[in-house]
């Protein structure tokens, strides 16, 4: 498949991104660059200076809503992508409402309890929907522990071990690897039956 054929297949696809932090912002940008036609972004947060060590935002965007800042950054990269930006704190009902028409959903939260809520919600309410989650990406180095595995409609990317802490912060390289691994998994799913 050449890039034009890939773009033709991706332009009618819709991907949901739950959370626009380190995982979500980098994953969304990668999907926009290759031409996924429609992205549904959801996050309640604003850009802070501490986010810039890993998230796809710029100094002058500090204080802006993440979904609005990310929508603008995507427009600057690929204006053909339709971006739906939802400034919302996601819960089970809103996850179903926002993402039920998506071909694939990306879990890109930071907190473990939000990841649990997301996986349980999709398993119960949208069991056929492919869900790509990020689990374990704190710290630096240790490339070989990062992997992707698949359980039914659930795709797990990360090392599944390293949790963030004061001495093991989330940093651009490892968070970016997992975010791009999620984007790569999304592409694999979208292009498989395209």
């Amino acid at each position: 498949m050449n890039f034009q054929q890939i773009k033709d297949k991706l332009k009618n696809k819709k991907v949901g991104i739950a959370g626009c932090g380190g995982l979500g912002s980098n994953c969304a940008v990668a999907l926009a660059r290759v031409g996924v036609g429609h992205l549904v972004l959801a996050d309640f947060d604003v850009v802070e200076e501490s986010n810039l060590n890993r998230q796809y935002y710029f100094q002058q965007q500090i204080g802006l809503k993440k979904v609005e800042a990310l929508k603008e950054n995507i427009r600057l990269i690929n204006p053909d992508v339709k971006v739906e930006a939802h400034d919302i704190f996601l819960e089970a009902a809103s996850i179903v409402a926002l993402f039920k028409d998506c071909d694939v959903i990306v879990e890109a939260f930071d907190k473990a309890e939000m990841k649990l809520m997301m996986i349980e919600t999709i398993c119960e309410k949208l069991p056929e929907k492919p869900l790509v989650v990020g689990l374990g990406m704190a710290g630096w180095g240790d490339n070989e522990s990062i992997h992707c595995r698949n359980a039914d409609h659930l795709f797990i990317c990360g090392d599944e071990v390293k949790e963030i802490s004061e001495d093991l912060p989330p940093l651009a390289p490892r968070v970016g690897i997992v975010a791009h691994m999620q984007a790569n998994t999304v592409l694999e799913i979208l292009l498989k039956n395209a």
Binding site: G22, L23, A112, M137, L154, G158, V161
Partner: peptide
């Protein structure tokens, strides 16, 4: 059987 640990970070 899948036993998937929820790990904070993202």
């Amino acid at each position: 059987v899948q036993i998937i640990h929820m790990i904070s970070g993202g």
